[in-house]
Design a binder for these strands. Structure first.
Lengths: 115, 115
DNA sequence: TCTATAGTTAAGCAAATGCTTAACCAATCA
DNA sequence: TGATTGGTTAAGCATTTGCTTAACTATAGA
């Protein structure tokens, strides 16, 4: 079991590459084989394999080999970790703005009381 | 103007480091100076500066210098790009599951009609 | 059985990353 | 004015990343 921070490291790192995101985009429409995932890229097979390994290590995809073809699929649950973190940051920020607004309103009210 | 993919590269790459995420977490509670952001880390000042540069280049933060202190703040809008991409992937996946379910239901209905 | 297909491993390399130390500038403050 | 504080730049270095080619294994089909 990986701690939360290490999991986010792997997830965001995996998402930081356009080829890997393209693979995820393809996989979000349904499972695909390795060579099918490789097709859109002008990249050697080993390079594709390495990208897939990064995705799988991050838990963003799973795969199983049957015969000589390996079928990959997305693991949408893994997107949660990333989404939750982003949502939490936004929430904190909104909260802070709310407090700021409340404070400014309070100041204004005091001011009107004194004027 | 950066294209969408390059923006996502920078954003996810910036989020992939625990120190940078910690800085963003701090900033999501309100603005802070460089040295304030540096305090929690056992890391040289230049290292901190570099992390901040990565965040700012990705558009995740902004900063202004007044006197000799530079004040940084989060730019929550930049989180949108990342969140939107994740949401789109999830949506595509859900859609696919829906279609799959519809198809299976259809199969089952046909089967009952023939049985 | 021969051969093409699908994937895998190993080794190597250039560029990017994350850090360091050393040297420095500029705004405060005693 | 001289020292301290806050930040910045430059140079260097170890590690990681993203890719390559070459060599190899295993399954499927003619």
């Amino acid at each position: 079991m990986l701690n939360q921070s290490a999991a986010l490291d792997l997830t965001f790192q995996a998402l930081a590459d356009p080829a890997r995101r393209a693979m995820l985009e393809r996989l979000s429409t349904g499972p695909a084989s390795v060579s099918e995932l490789a097709r859109p890229f002008s990249m050697s097979m080993p390079a594709v394999l390495q990208h897939l390994a990064v995705l799988e290590t991050a838990g963003l995809t799973r795969s199983r080999k049957s015969g000589r073809v390996r079928t990959c699929e997305i693991n949408p649950q893994a997107l949660n970790t990333a989404q939750d973190w982003l949502a939490a940051r936004r929430a904190e920020w909104e909260q802070r703005l709310d407090r700021l607004e409340a404070y400014l309103t309070e100041l204004q009210n005091k001011d009107q009381g004194n004027g």
